[in-house]
Design a binder for these strands. Structure first.
Lengths: 336, 336
DNA sequence: ATAATGATCGTAAACGTTTACGAAGGGTGA
DNA sequence: TCACCCTTCGTAAACGTTTACGATCATTAT
């Protein structure tokens, strides 16, 4: 169908090995014939077949990125960071969205492996990553926004447990004791770490955990909304809620205000990620800032480094800093 | 390195053609030997090499999606829709983000072509799509959220000019005459259509266009903010602003409120797309709803249909409806 | 018994590249 | 002049599949 190296060879009256050499900047070729070949290739509108090339060279200059939800501002910014870095380094990325579905995560992983991408970065849906680790000898894998507790893994993330401490210590310092937790999917890695942090700070401050105050659901606005409503209608009112991330926090605020209460007047709300909408003056969400773009960028860097230096250490990682951003959805309360 | 068909053949004591037949559900094979081969393949952890397969079958079960900005909620939802549909039909999508950079769009297009994806859907950065059309004989291409004015093109979009009419007629009906337009990148397809609509409704209602009221910049919050500030500080105040999309509108509102004015008290604001944040009760943005997910889904459908029935018409398209969502950022004014 | 048929499988070519190896030719030094 | 080397190029194998074609064998019909 399309033009191949042989077509060019015929027209240029050289062997097709020579054409290949011309196209790949191989040194063993006369400069003049190279120019001639390139000229003809260009005239004929030749486009190299990356598939065939990949078959013999065993690399595709292609990376895979698997994320739970492309619609999530945190993750899409991670994807952007990775895409930019990859692009600048001559790699292209296969972005795969699995809609919080582990099954689809597996399918994507499998297809990526079949496609022989050069490496994969993944923000796992679930904390059970055994199906991922199974392939870490076949192909370079780096975890993004997740810290696997396994040997010899690459990852780049922030320290989620510590992040939560930032938020929780702040809340406690403000005098809050009745703090609800509205997180993400129960088996999700981020949720597990954040919930763990939530519990440990509670313990540390000798505050009993109220089971009705903790809910694991989805990382969506409507989940935050729905579950907050549920708490408001059925429980003793909390004085603060720690949302699993910013979009959940937006739903939480929505529910509180619809319930006739005010944020932070009656209930304080703190989020996670610091998405761009959080800083709007209509929102002014107090939250934990995460270096989203940087996470994506560094994930790509760590991955590409590992691809290009396969013999080096297999467990390079980066732990980035996050910080508390105090805006206007939390306030101090008098302890009584 | 990894296990090939030949390794299986050796172990199963058959030819590798037989192995291939077993793996591809070919009819010309004994059911018993198929089972044996599949069993061994599974035991050995065989993973088909999609590259090699693609070389001979000439298709990769892979689609490309090129969008200007993955961070944009409109576009990420389009991507989600496309990904879901593709996934359900056994295709995987190569999502490429070009950060509003035409150069990167070209690079991605070129790499996608080299990778021999089966088809491409693209939401073009610029209204100049000649570099894209050049390839429409080589590979099925469908435009998403864009209506190309060229022959024999597939696309799925809403009618942007009509969408703007919805917004502008509403504004005019409310009594607004001094309407600012803060749009996207000047050469961007959506911006061109929307601006065109803006002008024609102005004309239709015999309202002179005030040049200082029209600004083309980026589709970001900060662009909306920056340019609105610019107008507020230097011009006669408009009574309404038509924002290029919802995130721009958020920036617009931000600027107006920081300027000490209120929305819609002093200035009405109308957006575009109806992103999920627009319906928050803190925001309540009046906007034009677009079927984002549906656009992605249908783009994938149209593309896959064309891939699977190459002989059919090459210009299948879908034009979806959008609608005005009246919330609380616009109000009527008395004409004087 | 013989021919025809159908099921099952193997052989080999093909897909479009890269690359190891060897060959040819010209240049250089002694 | 001869031996050697370097540059440049062609031949052919390899990458891991699919698939057209032919071969074999058993089954069936005549």
């Amino acid at each position: 169908m399309s033009i191949t190296i042989k077509d060019i060879a015929k027209k240029a009256e050289v062997s097709y090995a020579t054409v290949s050499r011309a196209l790949t900047n191989h040194p063993e070729i006369n400069e003049e014939t190279r120019r001639k070949v390139l000229q003809i290739a260009h005239e004929m509108g030749y486009r190299p077949n990356a598939i065939a090339k990949g078959l013999v060279t065993k690399n595709s200059r292609t990376l895979g990125l698997i994320i739970p939800d492309i619609t999530n501002p945190f993750l899409s910014e991670v994807a952007q960071g990775m895409g930019d870095y990859a692009s600048q380094n001559g790699y292209q990325v296969f972005l795969c969205n699995c809609n919080w579905d582990v099954q689809r995560e597996k399918e994507h992983l499998s297809k990526l492996l079949s496609s022989r991408v050069d490496g994969i970065v993944i923000a796992p849906v679930s904390d059970d990553i055994s199906h991922i680790l199974r392939h870490k000898e076949e192909i370079p894998i780096v975890f993004a926004a997740y810290k696997p507790n396994a040997e010899k893994c690459s990852f780049v993330t922030t320290e989620d447990v510590r992040n939560v401490s930032l938020a929780m210590e702040y809340l406690v310092k403000l005098g809050h004791k009745k703090i609800a937790y509205i997180g993400g999917p129960e088996s999700n890695s981020a949720d597990i770490a954040r919930f763990h942090g939530y519990r440990s700070i509670l313990e540390k401050n000798a505050i009993a955990m109220e089971p009705h105050y903790v809910i694991h659901d989805q990382y969506t606005i409507s989940s935050g909304y729905r579950n907050t409503k549920q708490i408001l209608e059925n429980c003793d009112l909390p004085t603060a809620v720690l949302a699993g991330n910013d979009i959940v926090a937006l739903g939480v605020i929505q529910a509180i205000e619809e319930f006739g209460l005010s944020v932070p007047g009656d209930i304080s709300v703190i989020g996670f990620d610091d998405i761009s909408y959080a800083s709007l003056n209509k929102i002014q969400l107090t939250t934990i800032h995460q270096p989203k773009y940087k996470i994506g960028e560094l994930s790509a860097k760590v991955l590409i480094d590992r691809i290009q230096n396969p013999e080096e250490k297999k467990d390079s990682y980066e732990i980035l800093e996050s910080k508390l951003i105090i805006r206007k959805t939390c306030r101090g309360i008098s302890s009584y």
